[in-house]
Design a protein around this nucleic acid. Sequence first.
DNA 1: CTAACAACTGTCAATATTGACAGTTTATAT
DNA 2: ATATAAACTGTCAATATTGACAGTTGTTAG
Lengths: 236, 236
Amino acid sequence: MKPWQEIQLQALQTSNSEHLLFQTIAALGAELGFDYCAYGLRLALPLSNPKIVKVSNYPSAWQAQYQAKNYCAIDPTVKHALRSSQPILWTDDLFASTAAFWEEARSFGLRYGWAQSMRDVPGATGMLTLARSDEPLSETELAAKVFKMAWLTQNAHIALSRRLLPKLLPEADAKLSNREIAVLRWTADGKTAGEIAGIMKITERTVNFHISNAATKLNASNKTAAAVKAAMLGFL
Amino acid sequence: MKPWQEIQLQALQTSNSEHLLFQTIAALGAELGFDYCAYGLRLALPLSNPKIVKVSNYPSAWQAQYQAKNYCAIDPTVKHALRSSQPILWTDDLFASTAAFWEEARSFGLRYGWAQSMRDVPGATGMLTLARSDEPLSETELAAKVFKMAWLTQNAHIALSRRLLPKLLPEADAKLSNREIAVLRWTADGKTAGEIAGIMKITERTVNFHISNAATKLNASNKTAAAVKAAMLGFL
DNA sequence: CTAACAACTGTCAATATTGACAGTTTATAT
DNA sequence: ATATAAACTGTCAATATTGACAGTTGTTAG
């Protein structure tokens, strides 16, 4: 199985075009016997309206439909992916409460599928789906392929999220100073500016100064939003 | 390779003793040619003093030493694991700035090793380490084993973190009401109580009421801490 | 039917925050 | 040497928060 050893490190690590990257991942998926491959990335921020990007080689009519009807909101695989990193199989059971959606997907040839999610920076969840029209996914086949599928999920996510994240959320590469980080850490744990002043042996004014600078860098409108963003992006 | 197919779903999914679970994982590690296996879980909360648990079959003298000298704080594999889910090999390069630590580890037989981390609930990072004394880890060996190692990392983390998390952070299974969640979401995005009142068409008083109830459930001393905790634990 | 709970509202005082004003000091890199 | 950035401090007024008082209303499960 040459491609698995070769394609691996080459394209995934170096390429910086999402499209090329996705091609590589889809090719590895195809190698595993899946015609279709999809990757979705959901950034938890902003919490009241999380951002989502999708890349797939699904039939474009289905992609459009999925987008138009906002199927993301009801797709049970997405729901599962957001709670658990455990892989999930497309079964009638899974789609029990969303029969119409399931029917429609099948009508586009998306019949047998598998998905797994993964997170890196807290708040970024990626889901890899592998699917095909023809043949059911047997237990035996799965047992033989789980390892490569796990590996592919990991690497697809690591590679794709790295490119997609800064585009979706520019604050993700803000540069916070040490003091800003320290002050935000205490803030996130619920300390008031006055308490932090005591802990860090500086004035309350300085604490507020750092908080305010950090909030500006993070494009946050106050303390709370700054603390949440910093925490979710892994700065603390 | 019978064990890989058999042990898999059985013990990992059902067992609820951490120790038994870890035995299983270590056995799978051994099967892959590694005498030593270690799993560490770090909960980001509280941010100013993150909680860490370790389980391993390392020589107990080394475990004690590692704990006593708080090597967690300087261990380069830990540092790497917290930033990236990419696997990492123990190389001289990696330990360049922590030579004494590296020497000491080697003196306990921990010579050749590999580690990978993974996150699930935002803010929980698990790291699986596989190591041995005897034989260097060649590129060829790695290439052949990456898939199973990726799978093992995932499953070790999913299984172990599920048991360890509620113990470390009881708030992780707090039950927030729908309104509490909605209000916290807006709060986390930086809205003031007054603004949220406008958005949700309730009084400012009610907004503060929900926030305060949520803060109590989350054992948070104010709005900010409540928003951060709720966000990090995936409630929003 | 009724207990329990989520959701909702009111007021008031003490504390905390934010934003806008205007600086000094110290370390680091060119 | 000197620019740059981080770290630090001061004051004041407008807003926001928290905490403690004391309730009503609607839904749901036993």
